[in-house]
Design a protein around this nucleic acid. Sequence first.
DNA 1: ACAAGCAACTCCTCTAGTCGAGTAGACGCC
DNA 2: GGCGTCTACTCGACTAGAGGAGTTGCTTGT
Lengths: 262, 262
Amino acid sequence: MVEPLNLPDLDSASDRAVFRQVADHLRDAIDRGQLGQGDKVPSEAQLMQHYGVARMTIRNALQVLQSEGLTVAEHGRGVFVRSHPPVRRLASDRFARRHRDQGKAAFIAETEGAGGKPTVDSIEIAELSPSPAIAERLGLTTDDRVAVRARRYLINGQPVETATSYVPAEIARGTRIMEPDSGPGGIYARIEEQGYRLDRFVEEVKSRMPLRSEARALKLAPGVPVFHLVRTAYATDGTPVEVCDTVMSSDAYVLSYELPAR
Amino acid sequence: MVEPLNLPDLDSASDRAVFRQVADHLRDAIDRGQLGQGDKVPSEAQLMQHYGVARMTIRNALQVLQSEGLTVAEHGRGVFVRSHPPVRRLASDRFARRHRDQGKAAFIAETEGAGGKPTVDSIEIAELSPSPAIAERLGLTTDDRVAVRARRYLINGQPVETATSYVPAEIARGTRIMEPDSGPGGIYARIEEQGYRLDRFVEEVKSRMPLRSEARALKLAPGVPVFHLVRTAYATDGTPVEVCDTVMSSDAYVLSYELPAR
DNA sequence: ACAAGCAACTCCTCTAGTCGAGTAGACGCC
DNA sequence: GGCGTCTACTCGACTAGAGGAGTTGCTTGT
């Protein structure tokens, strides 16, 4: 036994369920740094022995921690304290023209600025009729047509975000918006070239647990919620010109917004 | 048997775990509306019989749904499809002076506007030294003093949000900021009366699973993440005058922000 | 008519095992 | 050295029970 199980005993006087007490002990150890990121949690067998309880009880305790996003189990290896990816801070001026004028899309510029290696992945482009929600935001009907651009963003090979943009087909047709490489400055630059001057974005933020498909696409650990952003871009005349639907791993991001007091 | 268990059989050819298949069937039934909000999910015993599997297998399946936030178990009564509270939309102009000038605090004005009955609860007020994070945001040191105002907001008796404000003691002392009823227009009005004109707020948004204490205070169902906002208020001269730390049930809110394209 | 009591039904916690499959290190063979 | 095999250890899935506690509704006695 290399590893001293520095855990308290059960409090048999307490009416707190045994598996919760075990979970509490381990959570404390993680909070106090006694178990650091990436460290191996004692195995089920060790914990069974230490506490003198059945395996299912220990598994319940570990399940609690896992669903809190504190640990990850790896089949055949053990249970480990989850390590958190570096946090990216998204500022509310990230779509400001002065950034776009550098000729780089927002994501690329940001990531390189932070010293990461950005990649864009599995780009899918189509032209089809919008869902009612998208149609409403773009001021269209479900009989109109929109260009759809779906892609996944990665940093150092790790997926962090999926995004789907919807642009009225009127605007997108014949531009590089319909091509995998949308050109310098990204699709916002292309939209402005079509004679629309971007004025403002409205971003709606929700938080929820991921769907199964999202958890797969973003390689999310269990117990990690996602941010779901729906951003609508408006031209100076008030016309909506793009809707972008984004799902992001919530533990990789802090969103930052500036609100006026005026 | 009043209730026909309209669920498929197991696919024994599939290598998908049995408890996951059961969870999939129930999730489908919920998604398709076959089981609506508040409906009772078949009992563990019924599901055991239907699928011909052990109790723990069924419980695992139900655990999956619960941790996805789709169901709630009630001891002695059954498992029910979760019903979602009405969603509140927080606009980015919610702290604009024109709203404050009505003489109401942001929360009260908003909630009444949406036809709900707002309450504020368990107000705690103290003067103490700030944590390093708060001190940094306020441009103070941990030896300085701040006024702390913690409260919980409810709508129709249902808790939706806890908030803690930190104001430099220099500003707060001798004002109604230190009293349970901070007066018309709330603490922002009091701060402006002290000669600081509010200019802008910077709001940082995180999403994560709640701590145990937060889940209790907000009466959160399992599997529901929280928004964690930290908002700093700046006066026109750039001085930070308040930090507000807010935890909100994520399924009760959509945050909406306006971003400049300029 | 009413209340008390009881039974049935619900989920909660826990025990004690089996079999399976992935991982990693030790070992021996080539 | 390089390669495969063996084995011990890990978690994953599942079975088959036990007693407990909260809820609901029926039965029964007054």
